[in-house]
Amino acid sequence: MRAAVCPGYGAPEVVHIEQRPAPSVEPGQVRVRVNAAAVNFPDVLLIANEYQVSVPPPFVPGSEFAGVVVETAAEGFRVGDRVTGTGMYGAFAEEVVVPAASLSPTPDGIDDRTAAAFGVAYRTAYHTLRSMARVQPGDTLVVLGAGGGVGLAAVQLGVLLGASVTAVASTDEKLEAASSYGATHVVNHRSGKLRDALRGAVPDGAHAVVDPVGGELAEPALRSLRRGGRFVTVGYASGVIPRIPLNLVLVKGIHVLGFHFQDVPADEFDRNETELREHLVGGRIRPHVGAVYPLEETVQALRHVADGRAVGKVLIDLT
């Protein structure tokens, strides 16, 4: 099979395409013919060995995919089933073998590109909004990194949940996308002081902030919260982990939370998953796919994400 391979740690340019033997299927696993794979920022970090876990090279990067089952050694799936799945690595290849538990059926009427673009970003955003930020109709919500995969998903879902969303991003193109999905206010943080811009956008203070970026944007966003507001840190796409003055947390009674799937209470997790799937199947949300590359251009796809140019999701097409 053809696969994108990371032979050693480094920049995206170390990745190359080669022929590799198809991985064997062990009990409890399923082989999937990959039709579409999504590029996520952690893929870039894994290749650079800058993620919180290391994968020994050589390895096939890629953590999110959609395709068709071609072999199974597990209950619950049959050859020919359309599925979407996640894993730490392996998706940037014509075939991937994963535990059955990491797969979900692709809903009828949802194409593989949509399925590949949907899973990680939208599940992260929805669980964050529902169970961490606890967004309610009428709330004001600030979303940092609002042009990226998780950020743009949070904009769409925040609007769907009834919030007034202020989208913060680095380019007008990203802000145009956020506006098209219902953001009430948009802020280009490169155009001036973010603290002043947020004071104008949410003069009474925000109920919640979702931050997948970190870096220098975190503190002014936190300052924009009203008393008792919730600040949810999701990731650090900026590459910089922020240092928050704790006196702000004390004085304003702010709640600072970190998002992990395993921290969502089981009953809420099931509720969130059901609601999100219903929103997708019902056509109330659709992932924004900003760029699609063939497998041969995996390096360009990774560089697109690494450089912060992605608007919504970046995909690799393997059909």
Rank of each mutant, 00 (worst) to 15 (best):
K252Y: 09
V53Q: 12
A221S: 05
L302S: 09
V281S: 03
C6V: 15
G87F: 06
Q29E: 15
L295C: 04
S179P: 01
F118N: 04
A201W: 09
R190S: 09
V264Y: 05
S224N: 03
G62E: 10
N188W: 04
I244A: 11
L46P: 00
G258Y: 06
V44G: 08
F261V: 15
G80D: 01
G148P: 11
F259R: 06
P58Q: 13
A22G: 00
R190D: 05
A154E: 05
I47G: 02
P220M: 10
D196N: 07
H255W: 05
H127A: 04
V168H: 12
Y9T: 11
T298V: 15
A121L: 02
T84Q: 14
A178K: 03
E275G: 13
M88P: 01
V213E: 08
V232G: 13
P220R: 06
L217R: 00
C6I: 05
E71M: 04
E176M: 03
P242M: 01
G148S: 10
A167I: 05
D196I: 04
F41A: 09
A116D: 08
L248I: 14
H279R: 13
P27R: 13
L222W: 03
R309P: 05
A93H: 01
Y9G: 11
I244H: 05
I254L: 15
P105M: 05
E176D: 13
G162A: 11
V44Q: 07
G228K: 12
E75S: 15
P56N: 07
G239V: 10
Q136F: 02
G148Q: 12
L157I: 08
T106E: 09
E273R: 12
V299H: 07
L144M: 04
G90D: 11
V150E: 10
L217I: 00
N247S: 15
G312T: 13
A167E: 13
P27H: 11
V32A: 03
S102G: 09
F231N: 11
L257D: 10
T106R: 10
N49K: 14
H304K: 03
D112W: 00
G85P: 10
F261R: 14
G162C: 10
H304T: 09
F259L: 14
G215D: 03
G67S: 00
V32F: 05
T84P: 00
A11S: 13
E75F: 02
R286I: 01
T128G: 15
L222K: 05
A73Y: 02
P57K: 06
Q52W: 06
D204H: 02
G8T: 06
R223P: 01
L295V: 07
L194F: 02
K252D: 15
P212K: 08
L175F: 04
V187S: 01
T106S: 02
I254F: 04
G158L: 04
V202K: 03
R31V: 02
N35I: 00
I244N: 09
G119E: 11
V79D: 11
A306D: 14
F41M: 07
A125R: 07
